[in-house]
Computed example of a mutant assay.
Amino acid sequence: MKPVIQEETTGCGIAAVANILGKSYAEMKAIANAMGIYASDTSLWSDTQYVRHLLAHSGVETSAEEIPFSSWEALPDQALLSIKHHQEGGKDYWHWVVFIRSETGACVLDSASYLDENIRTDFSQMQPKWFIQVFD
């Protein structure tokens, strides 16, 4: 598994969807841009509808609501997680990552370009607030 790395500072939503769909960042960015979705739009990391729309466009179903995070063990086999929550001007923002559980174990695909390792298992270091289940 080779995680997609975001090529723009604010491209975590595009990269997360690319990780789920098995596409490159450039491929996913082209699809997103054709749909009027751009990494430079801060709504991409402050509104869940953009990633939902990108996934639905490719036939991938997601949970209708954000589900509060309770534990790593309680997560479904695939989910979009919101981490690094913060507020700017009274508006919530976060960083998108992808949680995957398989027969080889669980990990988080984190597209941040500054990380030494983008396949993360340092679960105690991540503080998810909620998740969106991704159905196969």
Rank of each mutant, 00 (worst) to 15 (best):
H57N: 14
W72P: 05
G59Y: 03
K23Y: 09
E7K: 11
K91E: 15
E65F: 06
A15E: 06
G89H: 10
E117C: 08
I67Y: 02
Y114I: 07
S124M: 04
T121F: 10
A26R: 14
V98W: 00
F99R: 05
R52P: 03
S113L: 12
T42V: 15
A32Y: 02
I37Q: 01
Y50K: 03
E88W: 06
A112G: 10
P76D: 03
L54N: 02
A39P: 11
H85C: 00
T121K: 14
I83K: 01
R52E: 02
W96M: 05
A56S: 15
S46W: 04
M35Q: 14
P3G: 04
K91G: 08
L115E: 12
L55I: 11
A34R: 13
L75D: 03
Q125P: 01
S111I: 08
A26W: 08
V17R: 08
S63N: 07
E8D: 13
S124V: 14
Q87N: 09
V17L: 00
S40T: 15
D136E: 13
L54C: 04
A30Q: 14
N33S: 08
M28Q: 13
S46Q: 13
I132C: 11
P128L: 08
S124G: 05
F99L: 06
A112E: 15
A106Q: 08
C12E: 02
P3N: 01
I83F: 04
K129L: 13
L21P: 04
Q125Y: 11
A56F: 11
S24A: 07
Q78K: 05
D47I: 06
G89V: 14
L21I: 03
S71I: 09
S24K: 11
L80V: 07
V4Q: 02
Q6H: 06
Q78I: 05
G11W: 03
S58K: 12
S70N: 14
S124Y: 08
D77N: 09
W72R: 00
R101Y: 04
